[in-house]
């Protein structure tokens, strides 16, 4: 189950994205959430990169059920490294934007005043 965590994370990210898309009118009404959307997208990108990195190395079943599959040993090469770099960059970017959003916040995100 070497890639199970990444796949689960990506799945949850997809669920969250779907939730956001389904409730986009809510996000329009809550402007204080907007600064957090980009960090979230970068997180999704990071997890997507992790999973995509694993796909060429074997089929999905192997990724999920065999932790030490033969395909896992075949990982490597520049695409894998680029995707890996993308994962770390996206995650770092997400955290940077999150920190900025927190530090730039003037009032509570829920807003007690009109």
């Amino acid at each position: 189950m070497q890639q199970f965590g990444e796949l689960l994370a990506l799945g949850l990210c997809v669920v969250t994205v779907l939730y956001v898309l389904m409730h986009r009118h809510v996000f329009r009404d809550v402007p204080t959430l907007k600064p957090f959307l980009l960090p979230f997208i970068l997180v999704v990108v990071a997890f997507a990169a992790t999973v995509v990195e694993a796909i060429p190395t074997g089929d999905i079943a192997q990724i999920i059920f065999w932790e030490e599959s033969p395909a896992a040993t075949q990982r490597g090469g520049w695409p894998s490294e680029v995707l890996n770099l993308l994962e770390h960059m996206a995650y770092a970017g997400s955290v940077i934007l999150l920190a900025l959003a927190i530090w730039r916040r003037r009032t509570a995100p829920t807003g007690s005043h009109p």
Partner: peptide, 12 residues
Amino acid sequence: GPLVPVAWLFLF
């Protein structure tokens, strides 16, 4: 990894 999107989902 899996905890991160969970936290985001709850946040949203």
